[in-house]
């Protein structure tokens, strides 16, 4: 099959960017979306042009590196699917496909479709952990954890930190990401202890990074490849409120 790509090209962080058109020919429907880009890039290299830079690594939907806005939807048209797990059979002959980077002030473009998402790491560094050192911890079965709590924590912990939530949000808000981490830890007895401190610190860092606020449109939940629920945002809000009440005493 053949498709027409419209791709955001930008030389560097400060250079102006623009959409550039490419014809992708002889595409097999069994190819993954990224393999289609590989092929287009091979063609560009053969012509001596610089290939389209895009982030990718595991190509099995778990590392969270790939990050393409495909036809206006973060990670493309398929639900619960990362860009790397999207296949060309989801597109039709002759289709126009628009590919853009995640767009947010907190995710500046490095080049073409590659953005700098280190803001997420700094949010985790601000408090997304349980403060335990290696060694000297109690036996793993010393604290029983109700199965539903462990399952709910796992649901939130499935977040791959790809940033699709930010990309899809009209406000470029990072609330789904932050709330997934806060929920994961606050649902477990090990993480509950410093729950208030964590929520406050992570929200403060999130604001500092320049993400927008959550206006509860739920667009993030719809594009999340790991189907993290906006219920975790409610949980973060509760944790934050609790922390604020505690700190005022």
């Amino acid at each position: 099959m053949n498709v027409r790509l419209h791709v955001w090209r930008q030389q560097s962080a400060n250079a102006p960017g623009k959409m550039v058109q490419y014809e992708a020919t002889d595409i097999s429907p069994t190819m993954s979306f990224l393999e289609m880009l590989d092929l287009v890039n091979e063609g560009l290299v053969a012509k001596g042009e610089e290939p389209i830079a895009f982030d990718h690594d595991c190509r099995e939907g778990i590392c969270g590196t790939c990050s393409l806005m495909i036809n206006g939807v973060a990670h493309g048209p398929n639900e619960a699917t990362t860009s790397c797990q999207l296949h060309m059979r989801s597109f039709h002959e002759g289709q126009d496909i628009y590919i853009e980077p995640w767009r947010a002030r907190a995710f500046p473009v490095i080049r073409d479709l590659v953005t700098d998402r280190s803001a997420f790491d700094r949010i985790i560094q601000a408090g997304g952990f349980v403060s335990v050192n290696t060694g000297g911890v109690p036996d793993a079965n010393a604290i029983a954890i109700p199965k539903p709590d462990a399952e709910a924590a796992m649901d939130a912990a499935a977040c791959i930190g790809c940033g699709a939530c930010v990309a899809a949000c009209k406000n470029a808000s990072a609330m789904l990401f932050v709330s997934a981490k806060v929920s994961h830890l606050s649902l477990l007895p090990q993480g509950k202890i410093e729950g208030s401190r964590r929520a406050t610190a992570m929200v403060a860092q999130m604001d500092l990074e320049g993400f927008g606020s959550c206006t509860n449109t739920q667009e993030c939940e719809a594009v999340c490849p790991k189907e993290i629920s906006v219920a975790s945002i409610a949980r973060l809000n509760r944790e934050f409120l609790k922390a604020s009440v505690e700190s005022s005493h």
Binding site: A140, I143, A150, M154, H184, L188, Q190
Partner: peptide
Amino acid sequence: VQIIDQAVAQGVPFAREYGGLL
């Protein structure tokens, strides 16, 4: 054996039985 203790202390959500144990 220490690894499992460490991971649980960090908040790794391992699968559990209904009794709450791993």
